[in-house]
Design a protein around this nucleic acid. Structure first.
Length: 420
RNA sequence: GGUGGGGUACCGAAGCGGCCGAACGGGCUCGCCUCGAAAGCGAGUGAGGGUUCACGCCCUCCGUGGGUUCAAAUCCCACCCCCACCGCCA
């Protein structure tokens, strides 16, 4: 939710900001409803003030004056019974429409409507050169016996896999590596609930915008989270935290569930686009004045993680049209996949500014003043896609795949070997 | 699945339908006292919104939503959430 005061104070500013993400059709309607609401609010409050005044006089008045005093108060009471529902309807409509307003893009966000207009900031790391024909990750995975897609389909349908043998160990190793790295940087490890209430989904910003993408458990009225961001953003809902304790940093681990609606036929092989995958996520509650510094910190952690694993990548700044509803800015890191000959999104970092905090009412208090915090999130390790990048970049002529040095401590092996 | 008990301000905890935004205790802040601290004493201490250049004024909030009434923390209805115990269970 954005601050509706902005619509009153500087509608043109809001309009210009939204233009960078393709515009928001209902903007003027929201602004008009807001004006109407305030008009009615003043009317209702004045009536209530009058009613309160009259009511207070009743017990003080002489018994013989009571009937007339009550009759007088009743006139106002009846009038309020007409005005209040009307105000309420206006407020409901306003809230409903306003909940579709996305966050305002930061000034540094490039204009654009689709991912074609995202901006590649730079490329980091050397693309590997092979003196043999490199294999794509799906083939490698099969050869190495680290996942089993056929049986995943048998059990759960397409886009589900079994991670097997060294694949399972590799996953746990990556998770632990990421958690340890962040633990040294002030992030408290958290394993989050994956079934969440509607309120958590709404507050994070995935509802109402991304409803199609989310699994819902109708019977128990719960949703399956697509990222631990949901539970982490919801963690301090309705709380006022001591400003001196900011930033609050969490390294969330969870299994994530995504419907991948509308992606039929896309990335059907391997570990790229699954309905279920595990991820370690950075999440920060920041003071609003320093949230862009915190954003840089999250981005730096992401780069260090990729560099430690010797994965070449590029930094992509999302254009306005490619931002999620909660994002004021979003930057992805895309790993280079030499055999597939393309880049693959492996991390994403978002500064949600006060958008989520306003919905969740997460505040801070410092020097006697209180305000909304800023929330930020960024992938630390999306396990499946990280494995994809490791496989393609570290494959060797004999069909094996080298494990990067920092990870060996966790895996206990130095390479993945082809089975039989 | 069953049975109970609860949701009041930063925390704990009272609260006859009418100066109740709410006693009291703790905490916190600022004073006094002190060489300094503790203790003690005194004062203060919620949030959101509307309006105003401002001082201020006004409205709302006692889990949520309805209802009764001139007037609801208080009475009525529905719902949500939390806790405890029993059963089942990784």
């Amino acid at each position: 939710m954005i601050d509706l005061k902005l619509l009153r104070d500087d509608l043109d500013f809001v309009r210009a900001a939204y233009a960078r993400r393709g515009g928001v059709p209902q903007l003027d309607e929201v602004a008009e409803l807001d004006r109407k609401r305030r008009r009615m609010l003043v009317e209702v409050e004045n009536a209530r003030a009058e009613q309160n005044r009259l009511s207070r006089l009743i017990p003080l008045s002489a018994p013989e004056d009571r009937p007339s005093a009550i009759a007088e108060a009743k006139v106002i009471a009846d009038r309020l019974k007409e005005l209040e529902p009307e105000l309420e309807r206006t407020e409901e409509e306003l809230t409903r429409l306003a909940s579709y307003l996305p966050n305002l893009p930061d000034e540094s966000v490039p204009s654009g409507l689709s991912e074609e207009e995202n901006v590649v900031a730079r490329e980091v790391g050397e693309r590997p050169r092979f003196d043999f024909e490199p294999l794509d990750h799906a083939t490698l995975g099969r050869n190495l016996g680290i996942f089993d897609a056929e049986r995943g389909v048998k059990t759960s349908g397409s886009r589900f896999v079994y991670l097997t043998g060294p694949g399972a160990v590799l996953e746990l190793s990556l998770v632990r590596f990421a958690i340890d790295m962040l633990g040294g940087r002030g992030f408290t490890p958290v394993i989050t609930p994956v079934l969440v209430r509607e309120r958590a989904m709404y507050g994070t910003g995935f509802l109402p915008a991304d409803e199609r993408e989310i699994y819902k458990i109708e019977r128990d009225d719960l949703y399956l989270a697509g990222t631990s961001e949901v539970a982490l953003a919801s963690m301090h809902a309705e709380e006022t935290v001591d400003g001196a304790r900011l930033p609050l940093r969490y390294a969330g681990f969870s299994t994530n569930f995504r419907r991948e609606a509308g992606t039929y036929g896309k990335d059907t092989q391997g570990l790229v686009r699954l309905h279920q995958f595990d991820k370690v996520e950075q999440f920060s509650y920041s003071h609003p004045d320093t949230s862009w510094d915190e954003y840089d910190f999250i981005l730096a952690n992401q780069e260090e993680f990729l560099q430690a694993l010797e994965i070449p990548y590029r930094v992509v700044v999302m254009c306005g049209g490619d931002l999620g509803p909660m994002a004021a800015k979003k930057i992805d890191h895309e790993a280079w996949l030499p055999a597939s000959d393309r880049f693959l999104e492996v991390t994403s970092a978002t500064n949600a500014t006060d958008y989520q905090a306003r919905r969740f009412q997460t505040r801070f208090r410092a020097e006697g003043k209180s305000g909304l915090v800023h929330t930020l999130n960024g992938t630390a390790c999306a396990v499946g896609r990280t494995i994809v990048a490791l496989l393609e970049n570290h494959q060797r002529a004999d069909g094996s795949v080298a494990i990067p040095e920092p990870l060996r401590h966790y895996t206990g092996f130095e390479s993945l070997q082809p089975i039989s």
